[in-house]
Simulated assay, not measured.
Amino acid sequence: MHRFAQLVIDGIAEAQAAGREVDESTARCIAHVLGRAYGRESALAGFGRAGEGSYLSLRDEYLDLYRDERAGVVVKEMIDWLGTYLVQQEGTGSGRRFMNEHLPPKLDHLLIRTSVPVAGQRFTVHIPASWHSGHEDELIELLTTLQLPEDEALQAFLSLPDVSVGTDDIMESFHEAFAGTYPNEEVALRALSPLEDWESSLADWCIDNGVEPEALAWNYEPLMERLRGIYDVVEGKDALHVFIK
Results as ranks from 00 to 15, higher is better:
H109I: 01
G48A: 05
L160T: 04
D64E: 14
A37S: 11
S42Y: 02
E176Y: 08
L110T: 14
E90M: 02
S164P: 05
E69M: 14
A215S: 15
G93A: 07
Q89I: 06
T167W: 07
S115L: 11
D23R: 12
G51K: 03
D238V: 12
S42L: 05
Q147S: 12
A215M: 05
E152N: 10
H109K: 10
A27K: 00
R49G: 08
S57H: 09
F157C: 01
G236F: 06
A191T: 06
I170N: 00
S57W: 02
E24A: 15
P194E: 14
D60W: 00
S173A: 15
A129T: 03
Y85P: 01
M99H: 12
V75H: 03
R20F: 00
L58N: 07
R36A: 08
F157H: 01
S94C: 04
M99Q: 12
A177K: 11
Y85C: 07
E69T: 07
E199D: 10
P183T: 14
T167K: 12
A129K: 09
D60L: 00
I230H: 02
E196D: 15
S159I: 02
W81A: 01
L63N: 06
L82C: 06
D204T: 09
D64S: 12
L139W: 10
V74G: 07
T114P: 03
E196C: 05
L146F: 01
A119M: 13
V116T: 12
R59S: 00
D68C: 04
D204K: 00
A50W: 12
R96Q: 15
G134Y: 08
G39L: 11
R70N: 13
I170F: 05
S130H: 09
A31K: 11
L240W: 04
V73H: 13
R28W: 10
T84A: 09
L148W: 13
V165P: 01
D108I: 10
R113S: 15
G91M: 06
A31W: 11
L34S: 08
L63W: 08
R226P: 01
R113M: 07
A177M: 07
T145R: 13
E186Y: 04
D208S: 05
A18P: 05
T145S: 10
E24C: 14
I207V: 14
M99P: 00
A153E: 06
D238W: 02
L110Y: 04
A17P: 09
Y231T: 05
